[in-house]
């Protein structure tokens, strides 16, 4: 009985410790970024890695998401003769939800995991300790550029995803399913407002912050050799994805 209580208590304490360490890590990062900006060269390198290298995967997921959305909503709407609203549905879903969420999930899988693995490897091979010894602030040198890159690049990727999603929906709706193109475009423009797109971009920036911060944190505090690096990578991807979906609900509740 006591053993069970002890186990439970240790779990809770461990969890609380984790939250505290994450918060301290973020506070360090903010303090470091505020004190002096990191080297631009490093930021651009990370932006290229997080942003540019993710374009192909984001375009692919965006296009096919838009296409399948058009297809699915077409079969639903056809039952009561509202095919003309397919464009509205696709554009609204892409701008408000699927664009930001799918983009950041793809970036998590591609870049978040890589960040955790890279920093984890640096940690277990004591490169980070070496940096500290050389009086280079590892947070300023390694973490801040990555988080800045996530914050700035994920919204850009989200815009691209929105656009290719709507384009894919148009292709399926108008070219394959034969909805009148004028009606399709008119309804899309009529019911989607600019605020929908902007709110989606704010979400994307939040998700970019979450996924890079989690990746950095998990890598930065990895321990236990190659096995520890692998675990850190997995944990980073799972935690970031879950946090993205949970925060998505609250962000949506606040925004609309």
């Amino acid at each position: 009985m006591t053993a069970l209580l002890e186990l439970f208590g240790r779990l809770v304490v461990g969890w609380i410790e984790e939250v505290g360490r994450t918060s301290l890590f973020l506070a360090d990062t903010v303090r470091s970024a505020a004190r002096s900006l990191p080297r631009l060269r490093l930021v651009f390198q990370q932006m290229e890695f997080v942003g540019v290298r993710s374009v192909s995967v984001v375009v692919l997921t965006g296009t096919f998401t838009g296409m399948v959305l058009a297809l699915q909503s077409y079969y639903g709407f056809r039952k009561f003769g509202a095919e003309s609203l397919v464009g509205t549905t696709v554009a609204l879903s892409m701008a408000r939800e699927l664009g930001p969420v799918l983009t950041s999930l793809m970036v998590t899988a591609r870049a978040g995991s890589a960040i955790a693995a890279e920093l984890g490897t640096m940690r277990v091979t004591e490169q980070i300790d070496a940096l500290t010894v050389m009086a280079v602030d590892p947070i300023r040198y390694l973490v801040v550029p990555r988080i800045l890159a996530g914050l700035l690049m994920v919204p850009v990727l989200c815009v691209i995803s929105d656009f290719v999603g709507v384009a894919g929906g148009y292709f399926v709706g108008v070219k394959l399913l034969g909805i009148n193109s004028g009606v399709y475009v008119a309804n899309t423009i009529k019911y989607v407002e600019l605020m929908d797109v902007f709110n989606g971009l704010v979400k994307a920036a939040c998700f970019g912050l979450i996924l890079t911060a989690i990746g950095c944190y998990k890598g930065f505090y990895a321990s236990g050799g190659a096995h520890g690096v692998g675990r850190a990578t997995t944990e980073a991807v799972v935690l970031a994805s879950v946090l993205i979906l949970i925060s998505d609900y609250f962000l949506t509740a606040i925004m609309y």
């Binding site: 942003g51 540019v52 690049m153 850009v156 691209i160």
Partner: peptide, 12 residues
Amino acid sequence: VGLLVLAGVLLL
């Protein structure tokens, strides 16, 4: 990065 950001801004 510049190209990507430009593309994003243009689409927006």
